[in-house]
Design a protein around this nucleic acid. Structure first.
Length: 480
RNA sequence: GGUCCCAUCGUCUAGCGGCCUAGGACAUCACCCUCUCAAGGUGGAGGCACGGGUUCAAAUCCCGUUGGGACUGCCA
C-alpha cells in the first residue's frame, strides 16, 4: 500500500518551525515511496481563530521550503462528509446530544479523581436543539493500544478518556471528528505529527472504528508516529506567543532554506556517520521513523546559524550574489525581508562592484542580513560611528599622522591595487614604529566608518583612489 | 489531580549487552594562521540523573525514585 501522509496545520498564526519539521518528515516519507503522496490540508474549521492571511502564510512557507505536495485542500471543503459522518454515527448510537454548558461541566468536575466530562447526558435521550453539542460515547474501562512507529505501542487506560465533543451546538464538526473523517477520505496511511497529539490518538482510533461500523466501510486505520516536541531553553513546548518560531522570520534574517531543512532534520533524527551537513537526497535515503528520538529537542538557533554559515560558504559566488539581492539591491527584486530596504539608493548600487565584493564577504557572514553592513560603505558614505571614530582616531595620537601619510602615499601610488596598498601601508606604519595591525585601524575607520569589515586593501582598491583619498581627507578634518 | 511521554557532554545526538578509558556536531577554551573581523587548522575541558535488580559482562534489559514535559476546550 503506497504511503499517504499529510500535513494538517491550522491557520491560527505564523507558520511554526515545528510545523516545518513535521512537514519535512512527512514529505520525506512520501518521497521514499515512488507512489507516496504528501497532502497539505489546512484545518480551518474554527472560524473564530482562523484568518485568511495565515492560510496564505502556510502556502508561502511551504513554497519557500520547496516541499511539494498534493493540494492544498481545506478541511472546510469536506464539511458535507463531516455532516454525513455525524449523521451515521448518531444513527448508530455512537454519539449523543448534550446540553451541558462548559461552566456546568466544570462545576460537576469538583474534586473527582478523573476530571473531564462525567457523562451526565449519556442516557438523557436529548434531542438535537440549538444548545446541544454532540458527544462520543467512550468505553469506561479497558485499554486501547496506539501503534506508534516512533514510540512503539502506547497503552491508554480508557477510564481516563471522557466523552469528548465532536460537533458544536451549531452542528459543525470539530477537529476531533473532521480530522478523522478527512484522514479516512484521504486514505492516510501514516499520521505523523507532534507529540502533543499523542493523547488524541486513542480517541481518533475509536472514532475511526465507530465510523467504519456505522457506515459498513472497512477503511484500515492509519499507523501513528508522534515526533518529539521542539522546546525552548526552559524546556517548554515552543510557543507562538513567546518564542521566535515564525519560519518567516528566519527567512527574513537570511537563513538559507537548505540549511534550515538540514538543521530541522537533525532535530530528533541523525544521519549515519559523523557528518551532520548532509544533502537532502541522503536524508531521504537514510531516514526511518523508527530511528526518531523520543525526547524533546531544543531548537538551537546558534547551531542553525553555524549551519547556515557553512551553507553560505559552500555557495558559488554567483549563487551567493543572487541570494544577496533582496538585501543589497534597492531596485526591483521579487522578494524583500519584511520591513527592510537597503540604506542606499538604486543609483548608488553597482551590481558589478558587488560581484567583485562577494569574495571578500561570503566567508564572513553566517546570515544574509549581515551583508548590508559589510558593504554599505561602497554604496554610500560611511556611517558616522562616533564611538568607533573616537577609538581608532581621536584617542590615538598616532592616527592623524597615519592618515596624513596614507593620504600622501596612496596618492602617489602608480598602481592602486591591493598589493601596492598593502605595501604602502606597511611602509608608512614601519616609519612610525607601528605594526600593520595598528596602522590599518585608523585608515579602516576613516574609509569604512567601522572597526571591522572586509579585508581593507582589497576594499580600498575596489573603492578607488578618488573616494579613498576623499574619505581620508574628511576624517582628517573631522579629527582636527 | 488524572492519563500519557521522556531521561548520554551546556545543546542536538551516536550507542540498540562485551568493539565505550562513551564517538560526532554546535557552543566554549587555548594555540597556529592573520591588515580588522571571519574562515581554516591543531589541541583541551565537558556527559551515561539516582537506587536496586538481571547477567560472566549494562549507557544499553527490568523495577523503583527523582526530575522534566505533553494532554486534560462546543481550539487544532
Amino acid at each position: 500500500m503506497p504511503v499517504r501522509v499529510r500535513l494538517a496545520p491550522s491557520p491560527t498564526g505564523y507558520f511554526h518551525v515545528g510545523t516545518a519539521r513535521t512537514a519535512l518528515f512527512n514529505w520525506i516519507l512520501a518521497k521514499q515511496d515512488p507512489e507516496g503522496v504528501f497532502i497539505l490540508r489546512v484545518e480551518d474549521t474554527d472560524p473564530e481563530r482562523n484568518r485568511e492571511e495565515w492560510v496564505q502564510a502556510i502556502y508561502a512557507a511551504m513554497a519557500w521550503l520547496g516541499l511539494d505536495y498534493t493540494g492544498p485542500f481545506r478541511q472546510s471543503e469536506n464539511a458535507p462528509a463531516h455532516a454525513a459522518a455525524l449523521e451515521a454515527l448518531v444513527a448508530a448510537g455512537a454519539l449523543y446530544y448534550c446540553d451541558c454548558t462548559p461552566a456546568e461541566v466544570e462545576a460537576r468536575k469538583g474534586a473527582r479523581a478523573t476530571p473531564g466530562y462525567d457523562g451526565y447526558c449519556r442516557d438523557r435521550g436529548l434531542a438535537r436543539n440549538e444548545r446541544t453539542a454532540l458527544r462520543f460515547r467512550t468505553p469506561d474501562e479497558g485499554t486501547i493500544v496506539v501503534p506508534d512507529l516512533v514510540r512503539g505501542e502506547v497503552v491508554f487506560s480508557l477510564s481516563a478518556i471522557d466523552d469528548f465533543v465532536v460537533a458544536r451546538s451549531t452542528g459543525e464538526a470539530l477537529y476531533a471528528l473532521a480530522n478523522v473523517v478527512d484522514d479516512r477520505d484521504d486514505a492516510i496511511t501514516h499520521v505523523v505529527r507532534g507529540e502533543e497529539h499523542l493523547a488524541n490518538a486513542p480517541k481518533q482510533m475509536m472514532l475511526w472504528s465507530a465510523l467504519n461500523a456505522a457506515t459498513g466501510l472497512e477503511v484500515s486505520l492509519p499507523v501513528f508516529a508522534h515526533l518529539p516536541l521542539l522546546v525552548n531553553e526552559q524546556r517548554k513546548k515552543l510557543s507562538k506567543r513567546r518564542d521566535p518560531v515564525a519560519l518567516e522570520m528566519y527567512r527574513d534574517q537570511g537563513y538559507l532554506v537548505a540549511a534550515v531543512l538540514n538543521y530541522l532534520a537533525l532535530l530528533g533524527w541523525s544521519p549515519r556517520g559523523d557528518d551532520e551537513i548532509v544533502e537532502m537526497d541522503t536524508i531521504v535515503e537514510q531516514f526511518r521513523l523508527e530511528d526518531v528520538s523520543h525526547s524533546p529537542a531544543f531548537f538551537d538557533v546558534k547551531k542553525l546559524t553555524a549551519f547556515n554559515g557553512t551553507y553560505i560558504r559552500a555557495l558559488s559566488p554567483e549563487a551567493f550574489a543572487a541570494l544577496c539581492r533582496p538585501w543589497v539591491d534597492p531596485g526591483e527584486v521579487a522578494w524583500r525581508p519584511a520591513g527592510y530596504r537597503p540604506a542606499w539608493g538604486v543609483e548608488d548600487f553597482d551590481p558589478d562592484l558587488f560581484a567583485r565584493l562577494v569574495p571578500l564577504i561570503q566567508e564572513r557572514v553566517a546570515r544574509l542580513d549581515e551583508v548590508p553592513v559589510m558593504v554599505d560603505f561602497f554604496f554610500g558614505e560611511p556611517a558616522h560611528d562616533e564611538a568607533a571614530f573616537a577609538k581608532a582616531i581621536t584617542s590615538d595620537p598616532a592616527a592623524p599622522g597615519v592618515l596624513a601619510a596614507a593620504l600622501e602615499a596612496y596618492g602617489a601610488l602608480g598602481d592602486f591595487g591591493a598589493e601596492a596598498l598593502h605595501a604602502a601601508t606597511l611602509a608608512l606604519g614601519e616609519a612610525r614604529g607601528l605594526s600593520l595591525r595598528k596602522a590599518q585601524a585608523p585608515i579602516r575607520c576613516a574609509v569604512t566608518g567601522r572597526l571591522v569589515g572586509p579585508p581593507l586593501f582589497e576594499s580600498l582598491a575596489l573603492l578607488g583612489r578618488e573616494r579613498t583619498l576623499a574619505r581620508l581627507r574628511a576624517a582628517l578634518e573631522h579629527a582636527a
